[in-house]
Design a binder for these strands. Structure first.
Length: 654
RNA sequence: GCCCGAGUAGCUCAGUGGUAGAGCGGCUCUCUCGUAAAGAGCAGGUCGUGGGUUCAAUUCCCACCUUGGGCUCCA
């Protein structure tokens, strides 16, 4: 074969192809899976369609559905098919953007005459998409000039805005001055950078998930478009697994579990975003809070209490009324002034620091409060315990001299991680947010120094972290800590934030060794963040099966027959004497029924006692998630469970 | 706040233009049982709230409240 096109494969080998060969030709030449499954090619780092000619002497790799790049192409191409289906089913509809996203894709549409999609429409649209997939329509790329593009998209104003560069679309818009389009049929052409799969037949493992409103260009002052979300995968199996993961997540939804386990509720009469804690939920919360208090006490924190209301002057001083008035509950006009419910605890803590004269000898001063705050979250943003209008922060404010900053943050990181680990979280992600040059207060030197201190503290612990450039609040850089839960979801929980603003606003000073007044740096540190939200995360993490040390009821003792109830009660007395939360379930129902009920309540240990146990001071132990053990002496069980509780074991000991 | 859904017994849900039903749960009685559902009976609902249409509304329409999924926002 006479070759004059040479390409280099990822393994370094060369391949000689006919002139003007494409990625598809290369795939065919390689044969096998490459010929059947390659989606696109990457030539010298640039993604190209399989039917695009390969540059000579380029490094080429083929992309398959099982790679991140490949699945993204699949999702992106599926989004195109969605647009094609909608445009053909809804005459007069226009479309804006349709990128691949985590697990899938979406496309935004504007339907004529304020039409909207409903769930039934999704089924219709999905079958239309399957029809398009069945036709194996090729994605044909063209480069067009602006005049041609204007003509092609004359009826699609959102596309014209993208062409004008007014709207950003990562998937289309002119790149390097070249406008590209992809045409599937005479009727459907989209503005797009590509690349795409060779034809629609490569697609198919997708499902339309839901409709949603979405503002054009993400701007709530603009047109609300109709968004359709879908999920797409490279195989039927992966699609199925994804849908199962969603089911699993739905099963452990904290709102559902909270109702099933009778932990808390959101009574309508209370108003949106406000919860009441029932005894069992409150018991868990109290254990969490007690443990938090204990750790803070050991950690050198001083406890403070502050009221829920404050005169408006406080929030003028703190600046909250300037910056966050929209998120605060409205003013209460009183005869001696205007009052607001507090949205944060920090202004009050600043009052405590500012009371009297502080010496450098008192620093770092660590103030801690389980402080309940109220924020007016917009109705559409409320979400169970995760986004709520009244919540309690495990809030501490640390006032440090700038030379103490590094050591303080270093030990703070230890403290935070140690407490999070006690609750069973092991997998952390750290984000360091740096100054937004557009929006900050304080001088550059202190920003630099503090940012370095945060970075250095992370380095000292050998922790990996991502830098989020320009993501800090206006008042100082911060470290955010995310945890991964049992089913791999990430939750942002703790935060360590420097604040150069409040010490200034409250004119906080301490007298240094030199006799001069100095400005302390303030650190905001939330560990759980919000107790409510942390509780919700824990509930989902453990799927309601809290570790024994957190369980509201740790042991239920069941007599086999009613005449064993007295012995069961004596076992409970012994357990309680050892601080084990336990109760007798009297033999009104058959044993199996009582066990089942206890299992559904996710009780860590169910003890069954019958004739043999009464005779021998033993019990049958039925641990959550384990198998039944008979003839365990009460003493050894107490030893075992108290050890488990004291060690805060996060999985039941079996 | 905006878009699309939902709201019927404590919970999960069925149902209808002629003022309601199941399962689980609760209570009572019977059963006394060795590791995930014994049996019977009873109680329990202004069908989210307020308007409207209609001879008649839980059902149709409107508004509001609460709630789910998104968008926006999140100190």
């Amino acid at each position: 074969m006479i070759s004059d096109l040479v390409i280099i494969l990822p393994d370094g080998s060369e391949r000689h192809l006919a002139p003007k060969s494409t990625g598809a030709d290369l795939a065919a030449d390689i044969g096998g899976r490459a010929a059947r499954e390659a989606l696109i090619a990457v030539a010298d780092g640039i993604q190209i369609d399989l039917n695009t000619a390969l540059p000579n002497n380029s490094q080429v790799s083929l992309i398959f559905p099982n790679s991140d790049e490949g699945i993204e192409v699949l999702r992106h191409s599926t989004a195109h098919v969605l647009a094609q289906a909608v445009l053909s089913l809804y005459p007069g509809a226009t479309f804006s953007i349709g990128p691949p996203i985590q697990d899938g894709f979406y496309y935004d549409f504007d339907l004529p005459g304020d039409q909207t999609f409903n769930d039934d429409d999704l089924a219709t649209i999905e079958s239309k998409m399957r029809e398009i997939v069945g036709r194996k329509q090729p994605f044909i790329r063209s480069e067009v000039d602006r005049a041609a593009a204007n003509e092609l998209f004359a009826n699609h104003p959102y596309k014209l805005e993208i062409l004008d560069g007014e709207a950003d679309d990562p998937m289309s818009g002119p790149e390097g001055g070249v406008i590209t389009t992809y045409r599937n049929t005479d009727d459907f052409v989209d503005l797009c950078r590509g690349p795409h799969v060779p034809d629609t037949g490569y697609l198919g493992h997708f499902k339309l998930m839901r409709v949603a409103g979405a503002y054009w260009r993400g701007d709530e002052k603009r047109q609300m478009l109709q968004r359709i979300y879908g999920t797409a995968w490279s195989s039927k199996k992966e699609l199925k697994q994804h849908l199962e993961r969603l089911e699993e997540a739905a099963k452990r939804d904290h709102r559902k579990l909270a109702t099933e386990l009778d932990l808390l509720s959101f009574p309508t009469e209370l108003g949106g975003g406000l919860a009441v804690w029932h005894p069992k939920g409150a018991a868990i919360r109290k254990i969490m809070e007690d443990y938090s208090r204990q750790r803070h006490e050991e950690g050198g924190y001083e406890f403070v209490y502050t009221p829920h209301l404050a005169n408006e002057r406080l929030f003028q001083t703190s600046g909250h009324l300037d910056f966050y008035a929209d998120g605060m509950y409205p003013a209460m006009e009183m005869d001696n002034g205007t009052y607001y419910p507090k949205p944060m605890n920090c202004p009050m803590h600043c009052l405590i620091f500012g009371h009297g004269q502080r010496s450098y000898k008192e620093l770092p001063l660590r103030l801690f409060e389980l402080g309940t705050v109220y924020r007016y979250e917009r109705s559409g943003t409320l979400h169970g315990l995760m986004r709520i209008r009244g919540f309690t922060q495990d809030d501490s404010h640390l006032y440090v001299a700038s030379e103490q900053l590094l050591d303080e943050i270093t030990s703070l990181l230890d403290f935070v991680l140690s407490v999070l680990r006690a609750f069973g979280f092991e997998d952390f992600t750290f984000n360091l947010s740096t100054k937004d040059p557009e929006k900050y207060v304080g001088d550059d030197a202190i920003w630099d120094k503090s940012t370095e201190a945060l970075r250095e503290a992370l380095d000292r612990h050998g922790l990996e972290y991502a830098i989020k450039d320009a993501d800090a609040a206006f008042y100082g850089p911060k470290i955010d800590i995310d945890v991964k839960d049992a089913i791999g979801r990430s939750w942002q929980l703790s935060t360590i934030q420097c604040d150069f603003n409040l010490p200034e606003r409250f004119d906080l000073t301490y007298v240094g060794q030199d006799g001069e007044r100095h400005r302390p740096i303030m650190l905001h540190r939330a560990l759980f963040g919000s107790i409510e939200r942390f509780f919700g995360v824990l509930l989902e993490h453990y799927n309601g099966a809290f570790p024994t040390w957190l369980s509201p009821t740790q042991v239920q003792v069941l007599g086999v027959r009613a005449d064993h109830d007295d012995y069961a009660a004596s076992v409970v007395t012994q357990l309680k004497a050892n601080g084990v939360r336990s109760e007798v379930i009297e033999a009104d129902d058959p044993l199996g029924a009582r066990i089942r009920k206890g299992k559904l309540e996710k009780i860590p240990y169910i003890l069954v006692v019958g004739d043999d146990d009464v005779a021998n001071s033993t019990a049958g132990v039925n641990p959550r998630g384990g198998s039944v053990e008979r003839d365990i002496t009460i003493d050894s069980f107490i030893e075992r469970i108290t050890t488990e509780i004291n060690n805060k074991v996060t999985a039941p000991v079996t």
